[in-house]
Computed example of a mutant assay.
Amino acid sequence: MDQITLPRAAASSTLLEAIALMQKARCGALFVDLPSGPAVIDADIVLHALEREVAPEAELTLGDLKPRYATANFLPTIKTVSLSSSSVKRLNEIQSHLDEKSAVFGVAKRGAKTVTIVTRYETIRDAIAFLPKLWVCEGDPSHVLRAERLQPGNLCPYDGQPTKSD
C-alpha cells in the first residue's frame, strides 16, 4: 500500500482541461467525483478517449469516462488514513476495507483542490505518480499523444501537422 495526493477535477472538465491539470500537477491521474462515486482517472484513459473522440463539437468530459479501477470511499468509515503513522492492525484494516470493496484506491483525505488516496498496490501508485511525456499537434492542440507513439520530427497522425513535446 502507498499514498498519493492527486489534483481534484470536476466531472464536467473537458479532456484537454484534464490533461492541462495533470501537466500542471506533474502527475498521471486525477481524482473525480462521478455520479457513480469517487474515481481515479489516469492519463492513459484520457488519452485513449481523446484518440477515439470522433465528434470534437460534442466534447467529452471526465464524467463520460469509466475509471480503470474501483475507488472506495473511506471517509467517514475510517476517520483518517495515514500510512506512515499507522499500526500493523490499522494497515490490515485499510487493506481489508479495500479488498472487501474490490477497490484499488481508497479516499484518505479530501481537500478543495486535492485528494489523498491510498493505493492497494505500490505498482499502481508508481504508474499514476508521473505524467507520461506527451506530444501535442501544433495545428490542433486536441491531438495529444504519448511520446512513445511519435518520434521527434514526426507529424501528427491525424492531420499531418508538426508536433511538439509538452
Rank of each mutant, 00 (worst) to 15 (best):
M1G: 14
M1T: 11
D2Y: 13
L6P: 07
L6G: 13
P7M: 11
R8E: 11
A10K: 15
A11P: 03
S12G: 12
S12K: 14
S13G: 06
L16M: 15
M22F: 04
Q23H: 08
K24M: 08
A25K: 13
R26E: 15
C27W: 04
C27D: 06
G28Q: 08
G28E: 06
F31A: 08
F31S: 05
P35I: 08
P35M: 09
G37H: 15
A39R: 03
A39E: 04
I41N: 13
I41M: 14
D42R: 15
D42G: 07
D42E: 14
D42V: 11
D42H: 15
I45E: 02
I45P: 00
I45K: 04
L47I: 05
H48N: 09
L50R: 00
L50P: 00
L50D: 00
E53T: 09
V54Q: 01
A58C: 05
A58W: 04
E59M: 04
L60H: 01
K66P: 00
R68Q: 08
R68E: 03
R68N: 04
Y69Q: 04
T71H: 00
T71D: 01
T71V: 03
A72H: 10
N73T: 04
F74G: 01
F74D: 05
F74Y: 06
P76Y: 10
P76Q: 09
P76A: 13
T77N: 12
T80V: 15
S82W: 07
L83M: 15
L83Y: 11
S84R: 15
S84M: 14
V88W: 10
R90C: 07
I94P: 06
S96Y: 12
L98F: 07
D99Y: 06
D99H: 09
E100H: 12
K101D: 14
K101I: 07
A103D: 09
F105K: 08
G106F: 06
G106W: 03
R110D: 08
K113R: 10
T116Y: 04
T116A: 04
I117T: 08
V118Y: 05
R120T: 11
R120Q: 15
E122M: 13
T123P: 02
I124C: 09
R125H: 11
D126M: 10
D126G: 12
D126Q: 14
A127K: 13
I128A: 02
I128D: 00
A129W: 03
A129N: 06
F130C: 12
L131K: 03
P132E: 07
K133P: 04
W135C: 05
V136Y: 08
P141A: 12
S142A: 14
S142D: 12
H143C: 06
H143E: 06
H143A: 07
L145T: 06
R146S: 04
R146D: 02
R149E: 07
R149T: 02
L150W: 00
L150H: 00
L150N: 01
L150E: 00
Q151L: 03
Q151R: 03
Q151C: 00
P152K: 00
P152S: 01
G153Y: 02
Y158R: 09
Y158T: 05
Y158H: 03
D159G: 03
G160Y: 05
Q161F: 02
Q161C: 02
P162D: 00
S165L: 13
